[in-house]
Design a binder for these strands. Structure first.
Lengths: 237, 237
DNA sequence: CACTGCCTCGCTATTTATGGGGGGGCTAAA
DNA sequence: TTTAGCCCCCCCATAAATAGCGAGGCAGTG
């Protein structure tokens, strides 16, 4: 079957619920003739959302075994920008190779291709294809479809962000310039005294900024505030 | 002139320096028959890099006037995931409309289309087209080219990250599982006592993990350690 | 004009983190 | 087998962060 990008994108754009996305992953699975198609993302609050063809057994096992913490796909994609072919990752660690075998036992194919997608506020998503194939077959499959898959991944992400915004209405914490400077200094490892010196203000004043930034970010302490500011992407180290 | 996506992407992939990117923006400008094409990004260290056809006068003025802090394009794209047509943004504020008039005076057209692109570690880039046109003309131009432009924006970004990585080559420090848990707890805002309770160990032991993680990460204090772990992508919030 | 938000500085008290130092046991690779 | 790395616990002193309270000036918005 041939991939008709236009019709697929338009059905994605018409989707009004996560269930539609789920259905589209199944359709895509048939069209591309692969074992699995999965879209999965983590929002800025650490909540997960997934649409895909993995069995619930595998998903449960994945979470239960805490594979998230050792999955080279997650690691690799979190640090890179470009899509990745699973075989190119480092599976040498004991935990990773055990996970890989476990995945095969739960119906996954030995080949995978994952496109990382990033949204605002540190939002991070993965769009994954999985199939059983040899390395060359898979490489050429990927080469053929890479561009279309990227478009599809982005349409998935657009929808996911839409759904998220509907349900919640995410108030974006906007920090003032001085608060941003303060957070940045702290993220760079400066103590309050050093940060105050660098900003040319008293330590007392700096403290006020940190406090107000903390409140705006809904953070429990300074470390938390810096962590949130970083992962929401409102400061850079 | 018609846009040949394949050849453009391949020349992008062959680029070996920022100057090549610069040249490609000029080519693209001719092909698409628009006034300006600009790719601009901020890396994880806050350093800026740009390739584009804006005049140096305008760039200098932009920085000098601190337009970065009031530009609706920057604001809008930082918070959204999808490309934006400038006219759809909110230009009502005093500062923004002054900036817009100033831009027109410096050779920019009245229409713009900007694609935000995000990379790992909060990296943030913009790919912008600018031209003189009426609203409907511009809308149809954008509709025609949106998909290709997204591919191009991503190729630009891939290159930019490549250039960045060349200079560095820093091996990321590997933390032990308990150290990772400790860092993650702290990043979630837990105090040492809470984190220790959650991990089921004494606070003293937890401290040892934090210390050793700090040393491995070359961090000056706990906050710095968590910030590094986050921005290196070795923990997730 | 009044309002809100930002920037600046001060005080006190309590809690918490930091920087060292020790110790022992356990597993996995060299 | 030895070594290295991880995991777990304890003590001490000092330094730093936190949580409240207070104040005034200045700029931009409606």
């Amino acid at each position: 079957m041939k991939l008709n990008l236009e019709s697929l994108v338009s059905s994605l754009q018409k989707a009004t619920s996560p269930e539609h996305l789920q259905a589209i992953t199944r359709t895509l699975c048939d069209i591309l003739n692969v074992r699995h198609v999965v879209y999965h993302w983590v929002n800025s609050k650490g909540e997960r959302f997934g649409a895909g063809t993995y069995s619930t057994e595998w998903i449960d096992r994945y979470l239960e075994k805490d594979y998230l913490r050792m999955d080279p796909v997650i690691f690799g994609c979190f640090q890179r920008f470009t899509p990745v072919i699973w075989k190119d990752l480092d599976w040498s660690s004991r935990a990773a190779s055990a996970m890989f075998r476990d995945a095969l036992d739960h119906g996954l194919g030995n080949q995978g291709y994952t496109i990382p997608v990033r949204g605002p506020n540190g939002q991070f998503a993965l769009f994954t294809l999985n199939d059983q194939a040899d390395d060359d077959e898979w490489k050429s499959f990927v080469a053929t479809n890479a561009r279309d898959l990227m478009i599809i991944a982005h349409e998935f992400n657009k929808k996911a962000l839409e759904f998220e915004r509907e349900g919640e209405g995410v108030p974006k914490p906007a920090l003032s310039p001085r608060e941003l400077s303060a957070m940045t200094c702290l993220a760079k490892g400066k103590s309050r005294a050093q940060a105050a010196a660098e900003m040319g203000i008293s330590e007392h004043t700096l403290r006020v900024y940190i406090e107000s930034a903390r409140h705006k970010l809904g953070a429990l302490n300074t470390t938390h505030a810096v962590a949130r500011a970083l992962s929401e992407g409102i400061i850079l180290v």
